[in-house]
Design a protein around this nucleic acid. Sequence first.
DNA 1: TGTACATCAGTGAACGCGCGTTCACTGATGTAC
DNA 2: TGTACATCAGTGAACGCGCGTTCACTGATGTAC
Lengths: 205, 205
Amino acid sequence: MAKRGYHHGNLRQALVDAALELITEKGPTGFTLSEAAKQAGVTPAAVYRHFEGREDLIAEAAMQGYEIFADVMQYAYESGQPSALAAFEATGRAYLAFARKHPGHYIAMFESGISVNRTPELAALSTRARSVLERAANDLSQHIPPEKRPPASMFSAHIWALSHGVVELFARNSPGTTAPFPPEELLETGIGVYLRGLGLIEPDQ
Amino acid sequence: MAKRGYHHGNLRQALVDAALELITEKGPTGFTLSEAAKQAGVTPAAVYRHFEGREDLIAEAAMQGYEIFADVMQYAYESGQPSALAAFEATGRAYLAFARKHPGHYIAMFESGISVNRTPELAALSTRARSVLERAANDLSQHIPPEKRPPASMFSAHIWALSHGVVELFARNSPGTTAPFPPEELLETGIGVYLRGLGLIEPDQ
DNA sequence: TGTACATCAGTGAACGCGCGTTCACTGATGTAC
DNA sequence: TGTACATCAGTGAACGCGCGTTCACTGATGTAC
């Protein structure tokens, strides 16, 4: 699309895309500003027309990630309505799907070491994403008798942790780790057992 | 103990300790060979008397971590015997305790990017550690009627993932993330709900 | 006990490298008249 | 339509830096006689 030449046309986004590719390939450490510039066909110095520096570029990648992530979670939640259970399970699946489909974003968001409080904008996006899962958990907890109902934020945290653990341990081509099961199955069955433990689905499957 | 002077006395271990401290403070990226040498009071070149290079030093730290980890898990498992349930829960708690007590080791093992297949020795240690949790899961699964018994390796993977997720998301002073609950409580309750889901503990707590 | 000598842990200077960042510049683009 | 000019995206050379690694060396330690 860009007219190729002295002026790039859409360098800002091209740099973000390059960063995402590099992060996907080599992790947050392997990414360098110079290499991203090179991959976008541009001098390292050109990056400074669009970003304050290396960190700022990663932060932009993370922000775009949070944006997609929040949308995806939101969409999954709505697609499961009006069933609280279906909505909840859908957000769990969406989490994993996002991690698989956007590994660069996922790493930029959760493993690059950039703080979510770096900018108010980033913090807001992150909160929005998290709140979808919490709302789903909250809806669902209405089906549990109040006296044995755990706080919704707690079991939202459980699911978040389980999902993140599955991603980190089994959904990456981790060096030398053999995944015993497909991550999707692992997460699905894990959430299933967990919800049964809460009395939200039938004891016998 | 060491006589301090031209000869260090126990430089090899001092370097590993320095590496662990640096990793704890700044993550696997922040660690540099030069800085570790400096912290041990020695020239960077001296490192090469004891290690092949930077990677080799991290690998040694990870190996020592796996050794402690396997011991700790083993001990927890045995301390819970003869109750399969107690043994299982103890290993879960031991996982988290290890991550908290030995953050440098934990990061070297799981977040430094070094492959577990780097050396046969490292692979063996890692397998040993994992096998403790699998054995505990296997013992426990004997209490589930065979026809609705999930593979032990599966629910061992669930617990591993949940534990790892709790560590990564809530037991680190993650930049800007507020932990809603103490990680210990989060893991304990999470495992509790999960085991209830498997029918291994009473539906009502 | 004392001396000669081998061993080897650590030194310090040097290297090449790629990094992030800066700077004055240049040349393409778009707009005013 | 054509020319003059302002704008600004990207250049390319340069910087200082700390890195991992190498090398010939030195000086402490331990052992043989």
